[in-house]
Write a protein that binds this DNA or RNA. Structure first.
Lengths: 253, 253
DNA sequence: CGGTACATTGAGAAATTTCAAAGTTGGTGG
DNA sequence: CCACCAACTTTGAAATTTCTCAATGTACCG
């Protein structure tokens, strides 16, 4: 598996994420996903002077960022999975997006100094914070990088549009299939799909919070997807059993 | 009322929107919303040389744009309401956003040459198409305009995040309240809120497509909101009867 | 070995959809 | 001006999906 082991940890803790920022130890230089995403484009070829950056690690289930806190820079996930989510007063939670290795936390909000959502580590996560000014300068001076960023914001937006359609118009089984299908696509892009298996560390509670369902109902639906021989999730890995049926269900055709 | 009269028209027609582009007649110079939105910032002060632009009008219910067609430029709604929506194969429809006077159709997709969604006029609509290259040049040469655009994309994104939470976690009555509340906020910004009334030309079918409900259920919920004395919609106008209750329901507190 | 979070199952309740029919509205043409 | 048509709204009743509550089973960590 290409991401760090999931380490269960007492939930709900808040990382004092903007203390404890240490000077750069530059794991960026050896990052496995370097060429896959904004990272690569941003950091440029290895010859170029590297950006100031600060890395941190958070254990699984820890809240990396809590809605409203000030943000010290652009956040980029290096390894592991995280989720952006909104916590409601009534205890409900909506996951807005799943952030995977190489992803900016939210390309559209690159220069915002605080967010309306929180961020939680799904697995153990390593992430990186780059100073706003440096990123902005680099985007402004490089039309190519500007284009990459514009494309990423467009992609993020198209993705949320897709999820709006899912949540508004599709049944529980279709939403869960769409979630897994989307994860599969992204796993493929990161070369993590082998033998129809790939990492999928979301708990049923998290799957439920993504799809707007109850964990109980998510469990039943996952059971029926397993019984139908479409896929099954076990210990943080999903095994696809019927790809074409998954495609049919999850792509909304 | 500050927008053009709604004119019923045989539904479902497709405007041949990129034929028939006439040279600019520049109604931009006299636009009522000029100073409210991207328009103003983009076109700059009246002294400045005006942008090449092309204006068109579409009757209510006409499809202005169909998913996948090539786009000739940046689309900006001058007057009337339109919706961005996705039409599914099974006949269902999800409205992604409501586009109001002064709005870019989708700031996040400013430079995309085709969209995955379609656009339909809600009322009679006047809109404007600006050449990509001109807009891009203007954004690149003006840091202030760049900032306005970045802020607009951030705002659009925060708005879709809010809607994700609505669709995923909130009940029918809360979603509809949120829709009306949001429209009220925007009406206020355009100075269209008078005597607790403002234009709200969406049909129940369109309200349903926005909120992920059935038109039948949307009708019942609107009925209950009326009976509870919160607001009622009549002939394209909504009258707010209990603002604080609307706020409580619609803001998800 | 025990504890805690996570997953599964059952049964009943609630929200929402579906189908069907009847009432309203506004525009059109005679 | 009236009658008609089409789209839109309202209402009822039954079906379906999803939720809630509650209990039991399971995996993993210390």
């Amino acid at each position: 598996m290409m991401f760090l082991n999931s380490i269960a940890e007492p939930a709900g803790g808040i990382a004092p994420y903007y203390d404890a920022l240490k000077p750069d130890e530059s794991p960026c230089e050896t990052c496995a996903f370097r060429d896959l995403n904004f990272c690569g484009a941003l950091l440029g070829d290895p010859a170029q002077a590297s950006l100031r950056s600060r890395h941190r690690t958070a254990p699984a289930r820890q809240n990396i960022y809590r809605a409203g806190e000030p943000i010290v820079g652009v956040m980029l996930v290096c390894d592991g999975w995280a989720v952006r989510f909104v916590q409601l007063a009534n205890g409900k939670r909506q996951i807005l997006s799943v952030v995977m290795p190489g992803d900016l936390v939210s390309p559209n909000l690159l220069f915002e100094t605080n967010f309306a959502f929180s961020i939680q580590a799904v697995t153990k996560v390593r992430y990186c914070i780059l100073p706003f000014a440096d990123v902005r300068a680099r985007i402004c001076e490089s039309p190519a990088l500007f284009d990459v960023w514009v494309r990423m914001t467009a992609a993020e937006h198209q993705d949320t549009d897709r999820r709006l359609v899912d949540l508004g118009q599709r049944s529980a089984i279709e939403r869960i299939a769409a979630l897994v299908l989307h994860a599969m696509t992204r796993a493929e892009a990161r070369h993590e799909l082998q033998n129809e298996e790939f990492p999928f560390p979301l708990s049923q509670q998290q799957i439920a919070d993504c799809t707007g369902l109850t964990p109980v109902h998510a469990c039943r639906v996952l059971g029926s997807l397993r019984k139908k021989g479409i896929f099954h999730i076990d210990r943080g890995t999903v095994k696809i059993a019927d790809r074409s049926e998954l495609l049919r269900l999850g792509s909304g055709k």
